[in-house]
């Protein structure tokens, strides 16, 4: 039965969705070709990030994945209620992009002066 079907139809059935994934795998050659935003993301991936949500909940964990809509996946995530230093461990967390108010990365501030290094 399947052989009778014209090849055109099978092409139609194929998904038009092509997954595109880039990772923070060190690769000098392609790095140059990447757009500045992607290069930034590449720099941040795998680092600790602090994300503040609309409801003032703070999440701290490893920045693992994001997409066009700013949906985030944070690995080994701990959450903090406002004004409460006790962490609640969550494991891996998916954050809907529209909930994010602030996004901070734990790293040396390349452009900033040494005084401003510790913003916290």
């Amino acid at each position: 039965m399947s052989t009778e079907q014209p090849p055109a139809e099978s092409a139609e059935n194929e998904s038009k969705f092509k997954p595109m994934i880039f990772t923070n795998q060190p690769d000098e050659e392609t790095d140059v070709k990447l757009s500045p935003g992607r290069r930034n993301l590449k720099k941040w991936l795998g680092r600790m990030v602090r994300v503040t949500l609309k409801n003032k909940l703070t999440l701290i964990g490893i920045f693992s994945c994001t997409d066009h809509d700013q949906n985030l996946v944070i690995a080994h995530c701990d959450t903090f209620l406002p004004d409460d230093m006790t962490a609640l461990s969550y494991g891996n967390v998916m954050v809907p992009g529209n909930e994010i108010v602030a996004f901070e990365v734990e790293m040396q501030q390349e452009t900033a002066t040494p005084d401003e290094k510790k913003t916290n």
């Binding site: 969705f17 092509k18 997954p19 595109m20 994934i21 880039f22 990772t23 923070n24 795998q25 757009s35 500045p36 935003g37 992607r38 930034n40 993301l41 590449k42 991936l45 795998g46 490893i62 920045f63 693992s64 994945c65 994001t66 997409d67 066009h68 809509d69 700013q70 996946v73 690995a75 992009g97």
Partner: peptide, 17 residues
């Protein structure tokens, strides 16, 4: 801004993810 550059369906991933 960086996320806005990504195409719909494109993912930026940590390599261990």
């Amino acid at each position: 801004e960086a996320c806005a550059e990504l195409l719909p369906g494109e993912l930026a991933q940590d390599m261990l993810f």
